[in-house]
Amino acid sequence: MTKKKTMKIETPILPADLPIQPKPDLAVQDFVEMGVIQDCVFDERDVDRVTFEKVIFRNVTFADTSWSRMELTDIIFEKCDLSNADWTDAVIHRTEFRDCKMIGMQLTGATIRNVLIDNALADYASLRVSNTKQLVIQDSSLSRADFCFAKLQKTELTRCNIDRAQFSGTPLGGMDLSDCEFNGLSVNVEDLKGCIISREQAYVFAALFGLVVNE
């Protein structure tokens, strides 16, 4: 199998000497910038339009937060827990999620540009009706994730577990899934036109659509 070329994306633009700063109180502060926030828990719920710029989060828990229409620019998340966080309609640009737990995370309707998700546990995560461009997800588990009706422009899934993921209504033309792992997907046959798969995966799709391969 020919090795896939990794798509180049813009990385977060961050100063080399960002100071450590305490966890902000989002009840009174809706704009946070220029710092490293670490080893803490955000438990604020129902926050609207909070903005983070040029921030590194290390070992921070965001689980079960509900922050709609938030904006992230030049951000790095390292070893963070975002399980079941609801960040519906977020705008995310030049951001990296590294070694994060993202089970059930909701990015429904999000606008995503130049984002890397690396080594994430993101089963049941939702990018339904999201609009992505320059998104790379690699070495991650996306079992039963929801990509339905998303607009995936220049989106790359590499060495990911996408078993039972949902792609109904999402065109996959040009997307290379050949090194991803799955035993089944929820997808419309017309959306597979131009999708790149391996020979072994072809048998999975044949079974999915009720075809019998005569060897």
Rank of each mutant, 00 (worst) to 15 (best):
N188A: 09
V32L: 06
K101W: 05
L211E: 10
L72A: 06
D179W: 02
I75S: 11
N183M: 06
I92H: 07
V136W: 06
E10G: 09
D118M: 04
V60I: 03
R128I: 14
F31P: 06
I196T: 02
F31T: 11
S66V: 15
R58H: 08
L107C: 12
D48M: 11
G169V: 04
V36Y: 06
N161T: 11
K8T: 12
I197F: 05
K54N: 12
S126I: 11
F147Y: 11
E200C: 02
V213Q: 02
Q201G: 05
N84S: 15
K5F: 08
A150S: 15
C160L: 07
V213K: 02
A122D: 02
A27Y: 12
D86F: 14
F167S: 05
L18Q: 07
Q29P: 00
N161H: 09
M7G: 06
L14C: 02
I197D: 05
V187H: 04
N188M: 07
N84A: 15
P12S: 01
M70V: 11
V115A: 01
I13D: 09
N59L: 06
S130T: 07
Q134K: 14
T2G: 13
D146F: 05
L121C: 06
D99R: 10
I9F: 12
A16P: 06
D46H: 11
A90C: 07
C100F: 08
M34C: 11
L185P: 02
N183P: 01
R164E: 14
R58T: 03
S186F: 14
E215S: 11
T155D: 03
F97E: 00
L107R: 07
S66T: 15
T51N: 10
R49N: 12
T65V: 13
Q38T: 10
I196A: 03
R159S: 06
A90W: 02
P19K: 06
G35E: 07
S168E: 14
P22E: 03
D139L: 09
D179F: 03
K133P: 12
R199Y: 12
D48F: 12
I112R: 08
K133T: 15
K23C: 09
E71D: 14
N114T: 04
Q134F: 15
S141H: 08
L152R: 01
F149S: 15
L152Y: 03
F182M: 02
K133D: 15
A120D: 01
G104F: 03
K3M: 14
L192Q: 08
T108M: 12
Q138V: 00
Q201V: 07
F97P: 00
A125Q: 04
G35M: 06
E181Y: 13
I76L: 11
N161E: 08
T132R: 02
G104H: 03
T132Q: 04
K193V: 12
G210W: 00
Q138R: 10
L185M: 04
V212Y: 10
T111L: 12
G35H: 05
K79V: 04
H93Y: 13
Q38P: 01
D30A: 13
N114Q: 07
S141P: 03
V189H: 10
R199L: 11
F147G: 03
C148P: 11
I13A: 05
D118G: 04
N114E: 09
I112N: 09
L107Q: 08
S66D: 14
Y203V: 00
S178L: 01
A150N: 11
A145R: 09
